[in-house]
Write a protein that binds this DNA or RNA. Structure first.
Lengths: 190, 190
DNA sequence: AAAAATTATTAATCTTGATTAAGAAATAAG
DNA sequence: CTTATTTCTTAATCAAGATTAATAATTTTT
Protein backbone atom coordinates (compact mmCIF):
# COMPACT_ATOMS: atom_id res chain seq x y z
CA UNK A 1 0.00 0.00 0.00
CA UNK A 2 1.16 3.47 -0.88
CA UNK A 3 2.64 5.29 2.12
CA UNK A 4 0.61 8.46 1.72
CA UNK A 5 -2.65 6.59 1.50
CA UNK A 6 -1.80 4.36 4.47
CA UNK A 7 -1.02 7.41 6.55
CA UNK A 8 -4.18 9.12 5.36
CA UNK A 9 -6.35 6.13 6.30
CA UNK A 10 -4.77 5.84 9.73
CA UNK A 11 -5.71 9.40 10.48
CA UNK A 12 -9.33 8.26 10.48
CA UNK A 13 -9.49 4.60 11.56
CA UNK A 14 -7.36 1.97 13.25
CA UNK A 15 -6.27 -0.61 10.75
CA UNK A 16 -3.44 -3.15 10.58
CA UNK A 17 -1.11 -3.92 7.68
CA UNK A 18 -3.02 -7.02 6.53
CA UNK A 19 -6.20 -5.03 6.27
CA UNK A 20 -4.40 -2.29 4.40
CA UNK A 21 -3.22 -4.96 1.97
CA UNK A 22 -6.84 -5.94 1.31
CA UNK A 23 -7.69 -2.31 0.72
CA UNK A 24 -4.73 -1.98 -1.56
CA UNK A 25 -5.79 -4.91 -3.72
CA UNK A 26 -8.78 -2.84 -4.85
CA UNK A 27 -6.67 0.02 -6.11
CA UNK A 28 -5.10 0.67 -9.48
CA UNK A 29 -2.41 3.28 -10.03
CA UNK A 30 -2.82 5.60 -12.99
CA UNK A 31 -0.82 8.40 -14.54
CA UNK A 32 -2.78 11.33 -15.86
CA UNK A 33 -1.41 13.91 -18.28
CA UNK A 34 -1.99 17.59 -17.83
CA UNK A 35 -5.43 18.53 -19.25
CA UNK A 36 -6.47 14.86 -19.43
CA UNK A 37 -9.94 13.98 -18.11
CA UNK A 38 -10.72 11.17 -15.67
CA UNK A 39 -14.37 11.47 -16.64
CA UNK A 40 -16.48 13.90 -18.58
CA UNK A 41 -20.05 15.14 -18.34
CA UNK A 42 -22.78 12.92 -19.78
CA UNK A 43 -20.84 9.79 -18.84
CA UNK A 44 -21.47 7.93 -15.60
CA UNK A 45 -18.64 8.37 -13.13
CA UNK A 46 -17.32 4.92 -12.25
CA UNK A 47 -14.61 5.48 -9.65
CA UNK A 48 -13.19 7.52 -6.85
CA UNK A 49 -9.63 8.70 -7.13
CA UNK A 50 -7.04 9.22 -4.44
CA UNK A 51 -4.57 11.82 -5.66
CA UNK A 52 -0.93 10.82 -5.12
CA UNK A 53 0.60 13.66 -7.10
CA UNK A 54 -0.74 16.61 -9.00
CA UNK A 55 -3.87 18.66 -9.05
CA UNK A 56 -7.39 18.40 -10.50
CA UNK A 57 -10.44 20.50 -11.06
CA UNK A 58 -14.04 19.27 -11.02
CA UNK A 59 -16.23 21.61 -13.06
CA UNK A 60 -19.44 21.91 -15.03
CA UNK A 61 -20.32 24.08 -17.97
CA UNK A 62 -23.23 26.43 -17.25
CA UNK A 63 -25.85 27.54 -19.76
CA UNK A 64 -23.78 30.56 -20.75
CA UNK A 65 -20.87 28.28 -21.58
CA UNK A 66 -18.75 29.24 -18.56
CA UNK A 67 -16.81 26.58 -16.74
CA UNK A 68 -17.84 26.61 -13.10
CA UNK A 69 -15.35 24.88 -10.80
CA UNK A 70 -17.05 23.01 -7.95
CA UNK A 71 -13.85 21.62 -6.45
CA UNK A 72 -10.15 21.38 -6.61
CA UNK A 73 -8.31 18.21 -5.63
CA UNK A 74 -4.68 17.92 -4.57
CA UNK A 75 -2.34 15.35 -3.03
CA UNK A 76 -3.94 13.13 -0.40
CA UNK A 77 -7.52 13.92 -1.30
CA UNK A 78 -10.24 11.70 -2.70
CA UNK A 79 -12.07 13.18 -5.63
CA UNK A 80 -15.12 11.99 -7.57
CA UNK A 81 -18.65 12.95 -8.53
CA UNK A 82 -20.48 11.37 -5.58
CA UNK A 83 -23.85 11.98 -7.16
CA UNK A 84 -23.06 10.18 -10.39
CA UNK A 85 -21.08 7.41 -8.68
CA UNK A 86 -23.70 6.67 -6.02
CA UNK A 87 -26.81 7.08 -8.15
CA UNK A 88 -25.30 5.75 -11.37
CA UNK A 89 -26.62 8.74 -13.28
CA UNK A 90 -24.79 10.63 -16.04
CA UNK A 91 -22.50 13.20 -14.51
CA UNK A 92 -22.85 16.93 -15.15
CA UNK A 93 -19.24 17.32 -14.11
CA UNK A 94 -15.82 17.02 -15.69
CA UNK A 95 -12.73 15.90 -13.78
CA UNK A 96 -9.60 17.24 -15.40
CA UNK A 97 -5.93 17.25 -14.40
CA UNK A 98 -4.52 20.77 -14.03
CA UNK A 99 -1.01 19.30 -13.85
CA UNK A 100 0.53 15.99 -14.78
CA UNK A 101 -0.79 13.77 -11.99
CA UNK A 102 -0.80 10.31 -10.45
CA UNK A 103 -3.86 8.75 -8.83
CA UNK A 104 -5.10 5.55 -7.23
CA UNK A 105 -8.38 4.49 -8.77
CA UNK A 106 -11.05 2.72 -6.70
CA UNK A 107 -13.87 1.40 -8.83
CA UNK A 108 -17.40 1.90 -7.50
CA UNK A 109 -18.49 -1.68 -8.01
CA UNK A 110 -15.36 -3.02 -6.35
CA UNK A 111 -16.04 -0.62 -3.53
CA UNK A 112 -19.19 -2.56 -2.63
CA UNK A 113 -17.05 -5.70 -2.32
CA UNK A 114 -14.51 -3.81 -0.28
CA UNK A 115 -17.21 -2.81 2.20
CA UNK A 116 -18.14 -6.49 2.59
CA UNK A 117 -14.58 -7.76 2.90
CA UNK A 118 -13.42 -4.94 5.10
CA UNK A 119 -16.24 -3.39 7.14
CA UNK A 120 -13.78 -0.82 8.45
CA UNK A 121 -13.84 0.74 5.00
CA UNK A 122 -17.45 1.61 5.70
CA UNK A 123 -16.36 3.59 8.74
CA UNK A 124 -13.54 5.26 6.83
CA UNK A 125 -15.79 6.47 4.07
CA UNK A 126 -18.50 7.48 6.53
CA UNK A 127 -16.03 9.74 8.27
CA UNK A 128 -14.72 11.09 4.99
CA UNK A 129 -18.24 11.79 3.72
CA UNK A 130 -19.09 13.62 6.93
CA UNK A 131 -15.94 15.71 6.76
CA UNK A 132 -16.56 16.48 3.13
CA UNK A 133 -20.07 17.57 3.96
CA UNK A 134 -18.82 19.80 6.75
CA UNK A 135 -16.39 21.45 4.32
CA UNK A 136 -19.18 21.98 1.84
CA UNK A 137 -21.33 23.65 4.49
CA UNK A 138 -18.45 25.90 5.50
CA UNK A 139 -18.06 26.99 1.91
CA UNK A 140 -21.78 27.78 1.69
CA UNK A 141 -21.48 29.76 4.89
CA UNK A 142 -18.63 31.81 3.43
CA UNK A 143 -20.64 32.47 0.32
CA UNK A 144 -23.54 33.76 2.41
CA UNK A 145 -21.47 35.89 4.72
CA UNK A 146 -18.49 37.25 2.82
CA UNK A 147 -18.04 39.66 -0.05
CA UNK A 148 -16.01 38.50 -3.04
CA UNK A 149 -13.03 40.38 -1.73
CA UNK A 150 -13.27 38.77 1.71
CA UNK A 151 -13.69 35.32 0.21
CA UNK A 152 -10.58 35.73 -1.88
CA UNK A 153 -8.52 37.00 1.04
CA UNK A 154 -9.68 34.20 3.30
CA UNK A 155 -8.94 31.60 0.64
CA UNK A 156 -5.51 33.03 -0.09
CA UNK A 157 -4.59 33.31 3.59
CA UNK A 158 -5.57 29.71 4.30
CA UNK A 159 -4.12 28.27 1.06
CA UNK A 160 -1.16 30.44 0.12
CA UNK A 161 0.72 27.70 -1.74
CA UNK A 162 -2.33 26.53 -3.63
CA UNK A 163 -3.20 30.09 -4.64
CA UNK A 164 0.14 30.19 -6.47
CA UNK A 165 -0.36 26.78 -7.98
CA UNK A 166 -3.43 27.32 -10.18
CA UNK A 167 -4.25 30.03 -12.73
CA UNK A 168 -6.12 32.97 -11.28
CA UNK A 169 -9.09 32.53 -13.54
CA UNK A 170 -9.66 29.11 -12.02
CA UNK A 171 -9.61 30.53 -8.52
CA UNK A 172 -12.09 33.17 -9.61
CA UNK A 173 -14.36 30.44 -10.95
CA UNK A 174 -14.11 28.41 -7.75
CA UNK A 175 -14.94 31.48 -5.67
CA UNK A 176 -17.91 32.24 -7.87
CA UNK A 177 -16.88 35.37 -9.71
CA UNK A 178 -15.24 36.56 -12.90
CA UNK A 179 -11.49 36.72 -13.57
CA UNK A 180 -11.89 40.45 -14.25
CA UNK A 181 -13.28 41.00 -10.79
CA UNK A 182 -10.52 38.99 -9.14
CA UNK A 183 -7.97 41.03 -11.04
CA UNK A 184 -9.63 44.20 -9.75
CA UNK A 185 -9.50 42.98 -6.15
CA UNK A 186 -5.82 42.15 -6.46
CA UNK A 187 -5.04 45.45 -8.18
CA UNK A 188 -6.55 47.47 -5.36
CA UNK A 189 -4.18 46.21 -2.69
CA UNK A 190 -0.67 46.26 -4.03
CA UNK B 1 -39.15 1.33 16.88
CA UNK B 2 -41.14 4.17 15.41
CA UNK B 3 -42.72 3.23 12.08
CA UNK B 4 -41.51 6.25 10.14
CA UNK B 5 -37.94 5.75 11.24
CA UNK B 6 -38.03 2.01 10.51
CA UNK B 7 -39.30 2.71 7.02
CA UNK B 8 -36.71 5.41 6.56
CA UNK B 9 -33.84 3.12 7.60
CA UNK B 10 -35.04 0.33 5.33
CA UNK B 11 -34.86 2.66 2.36
CA UNK B 12 -31.10 2.61 2.79
CA UNK B 13 -30.04 -0.71 4.33
CA UNK B 14 -31.40 -4.20 4.93
CA UNK B 15 -32.10 -4.70 8.58
CA UNK B 16 -34.29 -7.05 10.62
CA UNK B 17 -36.60 -6.24 13.50
CA UNK B 18 -34.17 -7.34 16.20
CA UNK B 19 -31.53 -5.04 14.83
CA UNK B 20 -34.05 -2.23 14.65
CA UNK B 21 -34.79 -2.85 18.31
CA UNK B 22 -31.11 -2.35 19.12
CA UNK B 23 -31.13 0.87 17.15
CA UNK B 24 -34.27 1.94 18.93
CA UNK B 25 -32.76 1.43 22.36
CA UNK B 26 -30.41 4.33 21.63
CA UNK B 27 -33.20 6.79 20.92
CA UNK B 28 -35.15 9.08 23.20
CA UNK B 29 -38.37 10.75 22.15
CA UNK B 30 -38.73 14.46 22.87
CA UNK B 31 -41.42 17.06 22.39
CA UNK B 32 -40.27 20.50 21.34
CA UNK B 33 -42.35 23.65 21.61
CA UNK B 34 -42.56 26.17 18.83
CA UNK B 35 -39.55 28.53 19.04
CA UNK B 36 -37.73 26.21 21.46
CA UNK B 37 -34.08 25.47 20.73
CA UNK B 38 -32.50 22.00 20.63
CA UNK B 39 -29.11 23.65 20.85
CA UNK B 40 -27.72 27.15 20.57
CA UNK B 41 -24.54 28.69 19.27
CA UNK B 42 -21.51 28.60 21.59
CA UNK B 43 -22.62 25.26 23.06
CA UNK B 44 -21.34 21.95 21.74
CA UNK B 45 -23.98 20.05 19.83
CA UNK B 46 -24.43 16.66 21.53
CA UNK B 47 -26.97 14.80 19.40
CA UNK B 48 -28.57 14.16 16.08
CA UNK B 49 -32.32 14.43 15.84
CA UNK B 50 -34.73 12.50 13.68
CA UNK B 51 -37.83 14.62 13.14
CA UNK B 52 -41.09 12.75 13.69
CA UNK B 53 -43.36 15.76 13.47
CA UNK B 54 -42.86 19.45 12.88
CA UNK B 55 -40.27 21.68 11.34
CA UNK B 56 -36.91 23.18 12.30
CA UNK B 57 -34.47 25.75 11.11
CA UNK B 58 -30.69 25.62 11.57
CA UNK B 59 -29.25 29.12 11.42
CA UNK B 60 -26.36 31.32 12.44
CA UNK B 61 -26.21 35.02 13.18
CA UNK B 62 -23.85 36.91 10.87
CA UNK B 63 -21.75 39.91 11.82
CA UNK B 64 -24.52 42.31 10.80
CA UNK B 65 -26.89 40.50 13.14
CA UNK B 66 -28.91 38.81 10.42
CA UNK B 67 -30.08 35.25 10.93
CA UNK B 68 -28.79 33.14 8.05
CA UNK B 69 -30.65 29.86 7.67
CA UNK B 70 -28.37 27.03 6.57
CA UNK B 71 -31.03 24.32 6.59
CA UNK B 72 -34.59 23.44 7.21
CA UNK B 73 -35.60 20.09 8.65
CA UNK B 74 -38.98 18.41 8.36
CA UNK B 75 -40.54 15.02 9.05
CA UNK B 76 -38.29 12.05 8.35
CA UNK B 77 -35.05 14.00 8.21
CA UNK B 78 -32.05 13.88 10.49
CA UNK B 79 -30.83 17.25 11.60
CA UNK B 80 -27.77 18.33 13.58
CA UNK B 81 -24.61 20.41 13.38
CA UNK B 82 -22.24 17.76 12.01
CA UNK B 83 -19.24 19.98 12.53
CA UNK B 84 -19.86 20.57 16.21
CA UNK B 85 -21.04 17.01 16.87
CA UNK B 86 -18.11 15.33 15.12
CA UNK B 87 -15.35 17.70 16.19
CA UNK B 88 -16.79 18.48 19.63
CA UNK B 89 -16.32 22.18 19.02
CA UNK B 90 -18.74 24.94 20.05
CA UNK B 91 -21.42 25.32 17.42
CA UNK B 92 -21.95 28.51 15.47
CA UNK B 93 -25.46 27.35 14.72
CA UNK B 94 -28.84 27.38 16.42
CA UNK B 95 -31.43 24.67 15.96
CA UNK B 96 -34.91 26.00 16.58
CA UNK B 97 -38.39 24.56 16.13
CA UNK B 98 -40.52 26.57 13.71
CA UNK B 99 -43.59 24.61 14.80
CA UNK B 100 -44.43 22.45 17.78
CA UNK B 101 -42.43 19.32 16.99
CA UNK B 102 -41.53 15.82 18.05
CA UNK B 103 -38.08 14.29 17.58
CA UNK B 104 -36.04 11.18 18.34
CA UNK B 105 -32.73 12.13 19.91
CA UNK B 106 -29.59 10.10 19.25
CA UNK B 107 -26.72 11.12 21.48
CA UNK B 108 -23.30 11.40 19.83
CA UNK B 109 -21.47 9.35 22.47
CA UNK B 110 -24.10 6.60 22.34
CA UNK B 111 -23.73 6.69 18.58
CA UNK B 112 -20.17 5.39 18.90
CA UNK B 113 -21.54 2.42 20.88
CA UNK B 114 -24.26 1.92 18.32
CA UNK B 115 -21.65 1.63 15.57
CA UNK B 116 -19.92 -1.10 17.58
CA UNK B 117 -23.06 -3.00 18.47
CA UNK B 118 -24.63 -2.64 15.07
CA UNK B 119 -22.07 -2.20 12.29
CA UNK B 120 -24.91 -1.72 9.85
CA UNK B 121 -25.48 1.66 11.43
CA UNK B 122 -22.11 2.63 10.03
CA UNK B 123 -23.36 1.88 6.54
CA UNK B 124 -26.63 3.71 7.14
CA UNK B 125 -24.94 6.88 8.28
CA UNK B 126 -22.32 6.61 5.53
CA UNK B 127 -25.08 6.60 2.95
CA UNK B 128 -26.92 9.42 4.67
CA UNK B 129 -23.75 11.52 4.88
CA UNK B 130 -23.07 10.96 1.19
CA UNK B 131 -26.61 11.91 0.23
CA UNK B 132 -26.48 14.95 2.45
CA UNK B 133 -23.23 15.99 0.82
CA UNK B 134 -24.71 15.54 -2.64
CA UNK B 135 -27.65 17.75 -1.68
CA UNK B 136 -25.25 20.37 -0.37
CA UNK B 137 -23.31 20.35 -3.63
CA UNK B 138 -26.53 20.71 -5.63
CA UNK B 139 -27.44 23.73 -3.58
CA UNK B 140 -24.02 25.26 -4.22
CA UNK B 141 -24.47 24.57 -7.92
CA UNK B 142 -27.83 26.37 -7.88
CA UNK B 143 -26.28 29.33 -6.13
CA UNK B 144 -23.58 29.56 -8.78
CA UNK B 145 -25.88 29.15 -11.75
CA UNK B 146 -29.23 30.70 -10.94
CA UNK B 147 -30.45 34.22 -10.28
CA UNK B 148 -32.41 34.87 -7.09
CA UNK B 149 -35.62 34.72 -9.05
CA UNK B 150 -34.75 31.37 -10.64
CA UNK B 151 -33.70 29.92 -7.30
CA UNK B 152 -36.97 30.90 -5.71
CA UNK B 153 -39.05 29.48 -8.55
CA UNK B 154 -37.12 26.24 -8.56
CA UNK B 155 -37.46 25.90 -4.80
CA UNK B 156 -41.17 26.66 -4.87
CA UNK B 157 -41.84 24.27 -7.76
CA UNK B 158 -40.03 21.41 -6.04
CA UNK B 159 -41.37 22.16 -2.55
CA UNK B 160 -44.81 23.70 -2.99
CA UNK B 161 -46.18 22.51 0.35
CA UNK B 162 -43.10 23.55 2.28
CA UNK B 163 -43.13 26.99 0.66
CA UNK B 164 -46.53 27.54 2.28
CA UNK B 165 -45.40 26.14 5.59
CA UNK B 166 -42.71 28.62 6.64
CA UNK B 167 -42.71 32.43 6.75
CA UNK B 168 -41.43 34.07 3.58
CA UNK B 169 -38.62 35.84 5.31
CA UNK B 170 -37.18 32.47 6.35
CA UNK B 171 -37.29 31.24 2.77
CA UNK B 172 -35.55 34.42 1.67
CA UNK B 173 -32.84 33.80 4.24
CA UNK B 174 -32.38 30.18 3.16
CA UNK B 175 -32.09 31.25 -0.46
CA UNK B 176 -29.54 33.89 0.46
CA UNK B 177 -31.38 37.15 -0.09
CA UNK B 178 -33.50 39.73 1.69
CA UNK B 179 -37.24 39.44 2.42
CA UNK B 180 -37.74 42.66 0.46
CA UNK B 181 -36.24 41.13 -2.63
CA UNK B 182 -38.35 37.99 -2.33
CA UNK B 183 -41.42 40.15 -2.00
CA UNK B 184 -40.40 41.99 -5.18
CA UNK B 185 -39.98 38.72 -7.09
CA UNK B 186 -43.39 37.51 -6.00
CA UNK B 187 -45.03 40.84 -6.78
CA UNK B 188 -43.80 40.80 -10.35
CA UNK B 189 -45.63 37.61 -11.33
CA UNK B 190 -49.19 37.73 -10.00
C1' DA C 1 -62.41 43.05 20.13
C1' DA C 2 -58.38 45.80 21.06
C1' DA C 3 -53.63 45.97 21.49
C1' DA C 4 -49.28 44.05 20.51
C1' DA C 5 -46.28 41.52 17.89
C1' DT C 6 -45.01 39.40 13.72
C1' DT C 7 -44.76 39.16 8.84
C1' DA C 8 -45.15 41.21 4.18
C1' DT C 9 -45.08 44.99 0.71
C1' DT C 10 -43.57 49.05 -1.85
C1' DA C 11 -40.45 52.37 -3.65
C1' DA C 12 -36.27 55.19 -3.88
C1' DT C 13 -31.44 55.00 -3.78
C1' DC C 14 -27.04 52.69 -3.56
C1' DT C 15 -23.32 48.91 -4.14
C1' DT C 16 -21.17 44.84 -5.61
C1' DG C 17 -19.77 42.49 -9.05
C1' DA C 18 -21.07 41.24 -14.30
C1' DT C 19 -20.33 42.44 -19.00
C1' DT C 20 -17.90 44.14 -22.84
C1' DA C 21 -13.90 45.25 -25.17
C1' DA C 22 -9.12 46.19 -25.56
C1' DG C 23 -4.68 45.30 -24.93
C1' DA C 24 -0.58 43.56 -22.18
C1' DA C 25 2.15 39.77 -20.06
C1' DA C 26 3.51 35.48 -19.62
C1' DT C 27 4.10 30.55 -21.19
C1' DA C 28 4.43 27.12 -24.39
C1' DA C 29 5.46 25.40 -28.94
C1' DG C 30 7.62 25.24 -33.41
C1' DC D 1 14.17 33.03 -30.84
C1' DT D 2 9.77 34.09 -32.44
C1' DT D 3 5.13 32.93 -33.18
C1' DA D 4 1.00 31.16 -31.05
C1' DT D 5 -1.61 30.29 -27.12
C1' DT D 6 -2.88 31.08 -22.62
C1' DT D 7 -3.47 34.06 -18.86
C1' DC D 8 -4.03 38.66 -16.72
C1' DT D 9 -5.24 43.59 -16.48
C1' DT D 10 -7.75 47.95 -17.09
C1' DA D 11 -11.68 50.77 -17.71
C1' DA D 12 -16.40 51.98 -19.02
C1' DT D 13 -21.09 50.71 -18.61
C1' DC D 14 -24.77 47.95 -16.70
C1' DA D 15 -27.82 44.99 -13.69
C1' DA D 16 -29.10 42.18 -9.70
C1' DG D 17 -30.03 42.57 -5.41
C1' DA D 18 -29.03 45.33 -0.79
C1' DT D 19 -30.38 49.06 2.07
C1' DT D 20 -33.43 52.25 4.08
C1' DA D 21 -37.69 53.68 5.48
C1' DA D 22 -42.40 53.76 5.69
C1' DT D 23 -46.67 51.44 5.82
C1' DA D 24 -49.87 47.60 5.45
C1' DA D 25 -51.49 43.14 6.47
C1' DT D 26 -51.73 39.22 9.33
C1' DT D 27 -51.41 36.62 13.53
C1' DT D 28 -51.11 36.28 18.41
C1' DT D 29 -52.02 37.76 22.94
C1' DT D 30 -54.62 40.04 26.42
Amino acid sequence: MNRNLAEYIRRYIEIDDDELAIFNSFLKERDVDKKQYLFRSASVCKSKYFILEGCFRLFYVDKKGNEQIMHFGIENWWITDYDSLLNKTPSELNLQAIEGSKVLELNGIDLEDLYDQLPKAERLFRIIAQKTYIASQRRLQFMFSLSGEEMYEKFRDFNPAFTQRVPQYMLASYLGFTPEFLSKIRGKKS
